[in-house]
Design a protein around this nucleic acid. Sequence first.
RNA 1: GGGGGCAUAGCUCAGUUGGUUAGAGCGCAUGCUUCACAUGCAUGAGGUCACAGGUUCGAGUCCUGUUGUCCCCACCA
Length: 875
Amino acid sequence: MKEMKTTYDPKDFEDRIYADWLAKGSFRAVVDPEKVPFTVMMPPPNITGQLHMGHAMDETMQDIVVRFKRMQGYSVLWQPGTDHASLATEHKIVEKLREEGTTKESLGREAFLRRAWAWKEQYGGKIVEQLKKLGCSCDWDRLAFTMDEQCSRAVREAFFRLYRKGLIYRGNRIINWCPDCKTALSDEEVAYSEDAGHFWYFKYPVEGSDGSVTIATTRPETMLGDTAVAVNPKDARYRELVGKTLVLPIVGRKIPVVADEYVDMAFGTGAVKITPAHDPNDFAVGLRHSLPVIRILNDDGTVNEFGGKYAGLDRYEARKRIVAEMEALGLLVKTEAHTHNVGHCHRCNAVIEPLVSKQWFVKMEPLAKPAIDAVMKNKTKFTPDRFAKIYYNWLENIRDWCISRQLWWGHRIPVWYCADCGEVICEREDPEACPVCGSKRLEQDEDCLDTWFSSALWPFSTLGWPDETKEFGYFYPTDVLVTGYDIIPFWVMRMMFSGIEHTDKVPFRDVLIHGLVRDEQGRKMSKSLGNGIDPLEVIEKYGADSLRLSLITGVAPGNDTRFTETKAEASRNFINKIWNASRFVLMNAEGVEIPDIRDVRLQPADRWIISRLQAAIREVTLSLQKYDLGIAADNLIDFVRSDFCDWYIELSKPALYGGDAEKKRGTLGVLLFVLDNALRLLHPFIPFVTAEIYRCLPGEREDIISADYPRYNTKLSYRKEAKAFEGLIDLIKTVRAMKVSVNCPPSKKVRVYLVTEEKRLVCVNKGSVLRLAGASEVEFAASGAEAGENTVSRVCEIGHVFIPLGELVNLEEERARLEKELDRVMNEIARAGSKLANNNFVAKAPKKLVEDERAKLEKFLDMKIKIEEQLKSLR
RNA sequence: GGGGGCAUAGCUCAGUUGGUUAGAGCGCAUGCUUCACAUGCAUGAGGUCACAGGUUCGAGUCCUGUUGUCCCCACCA
């Protein structure tokens, strides 16, 4: 038998055990036709990322499910990997180049990519090491990367197929442009916030008259690109104006006044400047009225040549000067403070400019519909199911997905243009000549794909798709995807439609959604606030097991949760308890030949704890199957702490310290049986400490990671006896409470008189009662009179307890307590009585419930009499 | 404008298809250096389950409304 150290210190073994698992290949996924597969795809963290609390929770949840299933005998694949995070990574490297005083342009594409790869090699693996600290049991041999050869091939194939089907197209449309990152973004990558701004009212003169029309704008600089002013056709104020021509101030361009339903008469002045190149609504108006589209901004957010004298100025500098000039021209009517929603780049937070640009798009409507249907038809299920609604909401209102990014780090768009005839070429293989004119002067599209284009293929690209590999055939579709609700639009949705489109199957059967991990005050953990708690620091201080447990207990699926160090501490304390309980069992088991519980004459306490164990097994297993991880953990903690440690271990002491060797062996058999089961039940939640203890248990046993998850066994559920035994526990609790209520010190043993019909139960467990209740003797009595004149008494489940009072008694307190107790009992009698008096209840409620209620009523009536007697005797 | 979450003990939160006397952790009070554990043990105080209706024999749980609060989406220039 291996020795356990006296104190629980996770540092002693967490790293060692993980290394051991790696060495033994315990996480390796195997295509085994004999077994049922179970597959989980890890959401690939960004190579730029550091492990944060959100990851820690996400990965912990996955690891729990995965370990549970592995122990249940499934052939488990937990596929790990990392994401190239095109924008984030490129941003980081550009930043570094800037520090070095250079730019990506001066470096050139090739050199830049070499640097990016080098960066990835150096830092991209960091988060992987952090995941290992957490205990993640994924198959690291299969570690994938969204830009590795396999995933890139899948991207190429997916793009090709979509292009061929006409679902990918290139077009000039309004997109979200980040002037800092200098790239287009998808709608999902723009975060809106209420920003304080201004409303400027400008006069635009009517050509050939003294009249003018006043418009309001929040972005004055865009006037440089105005090509019309629009009013509502129903607006009587402007009826005369429609069709007239205005002279755009500063620029001098002649622009028409058009009538369009889009204009809200009640807002602003009812006249709207139209800038088709820089506003999605204006763009639509422009299309309807065939207006010119004049883009006035460069990619970096400066004004371009269409801005005349403002060319070259930053957009905000231009704004300032234009307002000043309008004022000088006497065309500024007024300025109002105005807060409005402004879009920001979710990566760098720069204000987004909507602008017209030629980009690649995925046509969403034909893809969204089957993705909606799949969830409607329950092919994929959300847990909790309310997130299905959010998913529908997104897909039903989805617009085409802008997938091109003006970046270098990523999957280059697999499209070539013929320099001679202009043919656009998209093939599976890189083309060598133009299929139309035969020219060899082909230029590949400069842009990259949105990172999420490759993430969308993750569930099958990692398994070898488009090849029919044996992994793909065996592990796909995957079983459950675990991720946060904030990722639904970016990823879940896109994996769904991509999976259905490319593989004809939903990529996963379940989606387990969790919330955000917030700080102590409920704020989002963020870099800018500096309120993030580093999971690695928590691991350092309390161990990975404690961190894991603290992240899932008391958390309901899909809800946000707060992380506080107190939680980690509470978890550590609980784990410490398991540690010490195990030590207790092992110390006593030393040198003893431990029998199988099937060969043991089980005592009532044994049957009770074994039954409680069965109940725990059943509840935990059911909860885990429903992904109620928090409930499962709570049940388990409750069982281990309360039933096993507080009660059974204490109950076992008389036998262990008594002289009956056979009894001692039997008790040790049960102790070890329950401990063994408890460790296996706990292993998915706190893998390290359970593994460390498990290997110290006597006997030949395999590593806990591959041990069987305990199964509920009806034969080991002695329900009646277990229930009866609860009566004994109640007796002990009652005596303890009585002693406290009369200020009797715990060390002072009291003589207990008991009126009961459960004499046998009490006799068999007399040692335990004496020890746990702090009694010197338990006497059976026919009535309280045998206890003498001056007694305190209480009703418990199995009878009536009397304790003779010494001088210690506090009569007043006892009387007050009894009166309060009587009050409660009277309430219960009234409640149960009225329930039973209700014919409807008796007729309609389940029989068992009615019977229970009757029994209760009887019990309370009995208690009432006894309490009244007691009160009388106290007078 | 649309959608969603939350409101339960002093604090943070659980509460599985409606059904025992509504739970946990932390905190608090009192008492314990009992030979696994003071990272502990025992006992206890503390809740009109936001409010108002409704469905039901029965509602913390289901329905409707109200209030407060948080989030997501859309957006009037």
